[in-house]
Simulated scan of single mutants.
Amino acid sequence: MAAPVVYGPGVSTYVRTVRLTLEEKALEYRLVEVDLLKGEHQEPAHRARHPFGKVPVLEHDGYSLYETSAITRYLDAAFPEVSLTPTDPRQIGRMQQAIAVVDAYVYKALVTDIVIPRVLVPMTGGTPDEAAIQGALPMAELCLRVLDELLEGVSYLSGGGLGLADLHLAPILAYFSRTPEGGRLLPSYPNLQRWWGGIASRESMARTQPGLG
């Protein structure tokens, strides 16, 4: 069986989520970089893989799949030796809820509205919009509070062992925790801070460390 191939930039949080899934399962895979800054995601070769020009895309034994949550669920089912999905129905529901919260609210609040203007904009020669960043903080704090509540009394977001929801959130916290806003806000959320301390020290995080941040 051929090794999975992941298309996308290593700096992408969603690409990293797929890579973390592969790493936690101790699977061999190949990362094919797609440079978003150069517009490679809009070129015909990548559009053939992903009609919307997004990342990541997974190819495995002639099977192609896009959308991160679909990819990670596929990998968990295709390589079940190390399971990242709980079996308890309530824990499954909590996992899906947490993934949906990350996709619908957390990514925009922490990455789009804070990490990108705070970190990426200066790297490309721009100046952060401080007013916009300040305006994003209430939603960021709401997201952090919700995540903290989900982690009340449990070690991982699903309520069981390490799961796909944790791997969805981890790359986002990796960037956000390095911003001044993250450094200031995260200590106010002890459950999330505890969770992040454990996740950040995992070998899979070290092996997927991107060049940015």
Rank of each mutant, 00 (worst) to 15 (best):
A2F: 04
A3D: 13
Y7A: 14
G8R: 03
G10R: 13
S12K: 07
T13R: 10
L20Q: 01
T21P: 05
E24Y: 08
K25F: 12
Y29K: 04
L31Q: 14
L31C: 10
L31S: 05
E33Q: 10
V34Q: 10
V34R: 12
D35F: 05
L36D: 03
L36V: 15
K38N: 12
K38T: 04
G39N: 07
H41I: 05
P44K: 13
P44G: 07
P44A: 13
F52T: 06
G53A: 12
K54W: 11
V55Y: 13
P56R: 08
V57W: 12
L58M: 08
D61M: 09
L65F: 09
T68H: 08
S69P: 07
A70L: 13
I71D: 13
I71V: 14
Y74W: 05
Y74A: 09
L75I: 00
L75W: 00
E81P: 02
E81Y: 08
V82S: 11
S83Q: 06
L84A: 10
T87M: 06
P89D: 04
R90A: 14
I92V: 15
G93P: 08
Q96P: 02
Q97K: 05
A100R: 03
V101A: 09
V101E: 09
V102E: 14
V106C: 05
V106A: 02
Y107A: 03
A109K: 02
L110V: 07
T112Y: 11
D113P: 08
R118A: 03
R118Y: 09
D129L: 07
D129R: 03
E130H: 08
E130I: 08
A132F: 03
A132H: 04
A132L: 02
I133H: 02
Q134R: 15
Q134L: 10
G135P: 01
M139E: 14
M139I: 05
A140I: 12
E141I: 05
L144D: 02
L144G: 11
V146I: 14
D148W: 05
E149P: 02
E152R: 09
E152D: 06
E152T: 10
G153N: 02
L157D: 00
G160P: 06
G161E: 11
G161V: 01
G161F: 00
L164N: 03
A165V: 02
A165F: 02
L167E: 01
L169C: 00
L169S: 00
L169W: 02
L169V: 03
P171Q: 07
I172G: 00
T179Y: 08
L185D: 10
S188L: 14
L192V: 04
L192M: 12
L192S: 11
W196R: 02
G197A: 07
E203Q: 11
S204C: 11
A206F: 09
R207P: 00
T208P: 14
